[in-house]
Computed example of a mutant assay.
Amino acid sequence: MPARSGQHFSGVGPGGGSFQAGRGSGSFTTQGGATVDYGGRGGSRTGPAGVTRGRGVGGVKVTGPGGQEFSKVGRAGGVQGPGGNAIGGSRGISQTTGPAGSARSISRTGFASGPNSMSAFRGGVAVGPGGVVAGRTGVAANGHGTYFRSAAAVSGQGVAVRRAAVGYHGCFTNTWCAKYPAAWYPVRWGAAAAWTAATWNALSSYGGYPVSQPVSYDYGSTVVYQDDSVYIDGDVVGTSAEYAEQATEIAEAGMTPEATASVEATAAADPTAAPDDSAEPAWQPLGVFAMVQGEEKSSNNIFQLAINKDGVIHGNYYNAVTDTTEQVFGSVDKKTQRAAWMVGDAKTPVYEAGLVNLTKDETSMMIHYSAERSVQASLFRIKQDGDQAK
């Protein structure tokens, strides 16, 4: 049963100004045995001239059943004038501590905006009225969000993301999945098979893809959104809406009655039972990935993916904040080699990456929130520690 408490205060000053403030907190326990504690407080003050100042602080802490703690604290403040001008900033600290190790990251941002909707961020990003983004390192993107990133920038971010992901090394094993009723673990898999990374040679042989013709999708580099069109290697392949709709169709192909029947038929009734080695496994693991957007250095969104011979994608999505797991459904278009998937029963967002890109340790990807809104993100492979593979 969730527990909550809170208070709210407001009043009017002698000069005509007003103020309000509040604070609240609570906690609850998830089905996996984790405890989520949260709290926050905030307030604002408006002067007689119409200038409003506000600030707030909030935090959340998740304690997993194994004793690992994940916490995040954020602080924000801002000032808004009567003419629509505003300035503000935020600061966030994330960390994990416990039996699996410790990690910490700090982020800071600031902004200024006016009637023309221009915003500038201290992290080196400016957003204009048309959704155009310009970064200090030369990054530029339209409203659909593809942008170029150097190999050095991606590699450096990967180091930070993997360091922060130490608390996830116990996930997706057979014993871990047994604790989460919604988790999926196929029969004939060993204790930690979900963490196995696929190679392109093995994957092409397994699924019948041309071994010498992998199709790589490097968003922001070989795949670019520009002027409401999508370009692959410089050629227009359709509008951004058409490209997103194609991704949805690919993902939904993994939810047909035939596809879901193959998933159910190969699911282990007891994930902790000894694997059946009498036949080839029906599912080839692709591995475990942390998903981040922008310059994030840590992730609460973890995907474990697998594929079968028919190109059906299945696996699990783990939300580290709520300590909950949902199954992943999707497929691969064998002609284009685009992989797309969805989480649970939700039709959006749709996630996509190139199949060969899912054999790499880090890759760009796209998140399609709708036909009108698609943004670029990154996947970083997490490699399980030997001591955690039991």
Rank of each mutant, 00 (worst) to 15 (best):
G13Q: 13
T29W: 01
V36H: 02
A49M: 09
R55D: 15
V57E: 14
G58D: 09
G59N: 05
V60W: 01
V62Y: 01
A76E: 14
G78M: 11
G81Y: 06
G84T: 06
N85K: 01
G89N: 12
R104C: 08
R104P: 03
I106V: 14
S107A: 14
F111K: 03
A120S: 09
P129E: 03
P129S: 05
G135S: 08
N142W: 04
N142Y: 02
G143S: 14
Y147V: 04
S150L: 05
A151M: 07
G156E: 09
G156D: 12
Q157M: 15
G158Y: 04
R162P: 08
V166D: 03
G170T: 10
N174Y: 04
T175I: 10
P181N: 13
A182T: 09
P186H: 09
V187Y: 11
R188I: 03
A194F: 13
A198R: 06
Y206V: 00
G208W: 07
S212Y: 13
P214L: 06
S216M: 02
S221V: 06
V223Q: 02
V224Y: 01
S229G: 00
I232R: 15
G238L: 05
E242G: 15
E245Y: 09
M255C: 12
E264Y: 08
A268D: 07
D270P: 03
P271L: 04
T272F: 10
A273L: 06
D276R: 06
S278A: 11
P281K: 02
A282C: 09
W283E: 03
A290E: 09
V292Q: 01
V292G: 00
G311A: 01
N316D: 13
Y318L: 14
T324P: 02
F329H: 15
A339H: 04
G344Q: 13
L355C: 08
K360V: 01
K360E: 15
E362K: 13
I367V: 15
Y369F: 10
Y369V: 01
E372T: 09
L379P: 07
F380Q: 12
D387L: 11
D387S: 11
